[in-house]
Simulated scan of single mutants.
Amino acid sequence: MALIHRATIVPTKIDLLRQWVPLQPWATGIDVGTLEVVDAYRFDDPDGEVGLESHLLRAADGTILHVPLTYRSAPLPGAETALITTMEHSVLGTRHVHDAAHDPVYLATLLRTVLTGGTQATFEYAEPGPERTVTALVHGTGQADADVPDVHAPSVDTRGTDTVVDVGTAALTLHHVPLDDPADRHALVGTWAGRAHPAVLATAVLHGTEHGG
């Protein structure tokens, strides 16, 4: 469950994404002169401390981009280069926005979701009012009884439009341009408005296995 506050945020998420995404190596060759919001989905942090949100954006050339971020009350220790900016949240105060590829909480949650067939978090609103229509639905392709290894300090590399993260026990690949075919592998797949056929948003391979299973 993701607790949603009806808050004012400065800068807005789309404003910070429009500034940050064009600077990323995985966006090279994509026309990111404009970025429009398609939707977003969230995961639960079991400890309730870190906001885990992945954004789906449409670039000027029509490419859909998948951009996971995390929100923290303080900078992630030892990950200064992953800090994108700070934003002021009218309820939660100063939030430190990070590239989720460097955040162990996000990586552990993504790996668990992929391997155990988990889904995105459901929304619960802290204050009364209209609820947002959610079109982005994601799930892992694994099984509920799967073993989930621990995540160690991440090693992050860019390969084309992918970010590959080695977490010691597994390799996680974030597909910033979603793929069409999940093939025979552990994956996070999703649909959203305008996308009825599941797209691959991330994949996981356990070290020492051929297909991650």
Rank of each mutant, 00 (worst) to 15 (best):
F43Y: 14
T163Q: 11
I14S: 11
G208A: 04
T81V: 14
G142S: 12
D99V: 02
L76M: 14
T86F: 07
A101H: 07
D47Y: 09
L17V: 08
V205P: 01
G190S: 11
A2W: 07
V32G: 03
T70Q: 03
A126L: 09
I4E: 15
D184N: 12
G213E: 12
R185L: 05
V50E: 03
D61T: 05
H96M: 03
I64T: 15
V138L: 08
V114G: 01
V114M: 15
G160Y: 12
H98K: 07
G160A: 02
H89R: 06
H102R: 03
T209V: 08
V164G: 00
G93S: 05
A183M: 10
H175E: 09
M87W: 08
D99C: 07
R95W: 10
G51K: 02
L172I: 15
T116L: 06
L188K: 05
D44C: 13
G93N: 04
D180V: 13
V151D: 06
P68W: 01
V134I: 14
D47Q: 10
T169M: 12
L110K: 02
D39E: 09
H89A: 08
T116G: 09
V164C: 00
R72M: 09
L137R: 11
L110Q: 09
P46H: 08
V148G: 03
H197P: 00
H98T: 06
A100C: 11
M1K: 05
T161M: 00
T34I: 00
E49T: 12
A170N: 09
V134Q: 12
T12M: 00
G51P: 03
V37E: 15
G117C: 11
P11V: 04
T122G: 15
V165T: 12
G62C: 07
M1I: 04
G213K: 11
S155N: 06
L92T: 02
V148I: 02
L16S: 10
P68N: 07
T133W: 04
V156P: 00
R195Q: 15
Q143W: 00
G33L: 01
S155R: 13
L172W: 10
G213A: 14
A187M: 04
Y71C: 03
V167W: 09
H207W: 14
P77Q: 12
P128F: 07
I64H: 15
S90K: 08
T158Q: 02
G168W: 12
E127R: 04
T70P: 06
A146G: 09
T133D: 10
H139I: 02
E127N: 05
G160V: 04
D184W: 01
D157V: 15
Q120W: 00
P22H: 11
L56C: 03
G48T: 05
R132C: 00
E53M: 00
I14R: 08
M1P: 11
A82E: 01
T63F: 03
T173I: 10
T163K: 01
G140I: 02
E131V: 07
I30M: 01
A153K: 12
P11M: 01
H55I: 00
D184Y: 10
D181I: 06
L52G: 05
G212F: 05
D39H: 03
T109V: 14
P128E: 13
D15W: 00
T85H: 13
H98A: 10
H96E: 05
T70A: 10
G194V: 01
V91M: 10
A100H: 05
D180C: 05
V134E: 14
